[in-house]
Design a protein around this nucleic acid. Structure first.
Ligand SMILES: [Mn+2]
Ligand SMILES: [Mn+2]
Ligand SMILES: [Zn+2]
Ligand SMILES: [Zn+2]
Lengths: 157, 157
DNA sequence: TTTTTATATGATAATTATTATCCATTGATA
DNA sequence: TATCAATGGATAATAATTATCATATAAAAA
């Protein structure tokens, strides 16, 4: 069993227990969604989750996916990444606020490992006098892999 | 003439000249929208701009507001601040990318004067190897004024 | 185990911001 | 002033999400 597998199982169990603790019903639909969420490291959209779900429970409705995400959001078991007039993306693997970086070439969303993110909140609070609640840092650019490709095919974009 | 007035006039002229330079027609609708945009420091939504516009040109359509904003966006004369499933907000007073802070109590959006924003891009590029194109930093919290109010009325929120 | 019941599901409609379409109008140029 | 491509306005289309509501069901109670 790989390390990802262990992490996946643990996240599934954490979410399962959280739902139980707060007396939400553990329906087959919800259990399937939890499993999908715990296995997807790529910040899926509701429709991505719905597509996966169709494999197992073909009668499920998209509304159920949205409703389950709403519940998990309330319980802070999934992080919602909002995009204007595109579908939201969700991260249940790491549900705590963290920054992301989006590659405009290959469209991949990756957790941004930016060491200073955690102290940003304090710095901003100090400089502005605000009581800071959320710090949303979303970066876009071209990933190293895609830079290599565009070097090999100059002028292709 | 106050300082804001001078700044307002200058921004109007800058936008006006930019449109002219790129051979966009200077219609009464566009001129009115430029004036509104140059005067509003509060990051208005398209519907806010439309409401103001109704005072002067009551037959204007919301589509015209959207189309004009699209043009100004392309010319980098307005900054679009995207909100998921809420209206976008626009800043033509300072059209260059900059961070904002939103007060969750009074709903005010203010330019975040965060001195380290400009170097964020380089730091992230260095740490990740990405060619960074945009850095979106949007903070939410309670502004100093609203903190005072909630001290005077403890437990009111 | 059966009964009960509050909650969840699924089908569908509603909502909302934005974009697309299309024809009549008009600003800019000659 | 005549010309014409660009623009405006009315309206339809789009797309993600949320609301509604009758039916089904997980879980607690009997
Ligand atoms: Mn993430
Ligand atoms: Mn601003
Ligand atoms: Zn890439
Ligand atoms: Zn405030």
């Amino acid at each position: 069993m790989g390390k990802d597998m262990k992490q996946t199982t643990r996240r599934f169990q954490q979410m399962y227990e959280k739902l139980k603790k707060f007396h939400y019903k553990l329906t087959p639909q919800r259990i399937a969604i939890l499993k999908i969420l715990s296995e997807r490291f790529d910040h899926p959209r509701p429709e991505d989750i719905y597509d996966d779900l169709q494999q197992q429970l073909p009668t499920t409705s998209p509304a159920t996916v949205y409703k389950t995400l709403t519940v998990l959001k309330k319980l802070k078991e999934v992080l919602e990444i909002q995009y204007s007039h595109e579908s939201n993306r969700y991260d249940a693997v790491n549900p705590f606020p963290h920054p992301h970086i989006f590659c405009t070439a290959c469209q991949k969303i990756t957790d941004l490992d930016f060491s200073e993110y955690d102290i940003l909140q304090k710095k901003i609070a100090l400089q502005t006098g605000y009581h800071v609640e959320t710090v949303c840092l979303e970066v876009a650019g071209v990933c190293p892999d895609c830079q290599k490709i565009s070097e090999s095919f100059p002028g292709s974009r």
